[in-house]
């Protein structure tokens, strides 16, 4: 039952006992709110400066 694989073809790992390949997606989660107000503020400032 012991699985030993060569890892030359897998850039993420090295060593002689690599993991079986069965990928699962793991999307990055949103933890930080987008700072809407400073962006809006800077847009307004730019517009005022242009005028």
């Amino acid at each position: 039952m012991t699985h030993v694989r060569e890892t030359d073809s897998q850039p993420m790992t090295y060593g002689r006992h690599a993991l079986p390949v069965a990928p699962m997606a793991m999307p990055e989660q949103v933890l930080e709110r987008r700072r809407a107000r400073p962006a809006l503020f800077s847009v307004l400032l730019k517009r005022l400066a242009w005028k």
Binding site: M12, A22, M24, M26
Partner: peptide, 22 residues
């Protein structure tokens, strides 16, 4: 398996397993 870079420490280590074999 040993990672070349320990990006994300333990959480990154487990995430790497999921993305490879999950």
């Amino acid at each position: 398996r040993r990672r070349e870079q320990n990006t994300g420490k333990k959480a990154g280590n487990v995430a790497d397993f999921i993305r490879t074999s999950g």
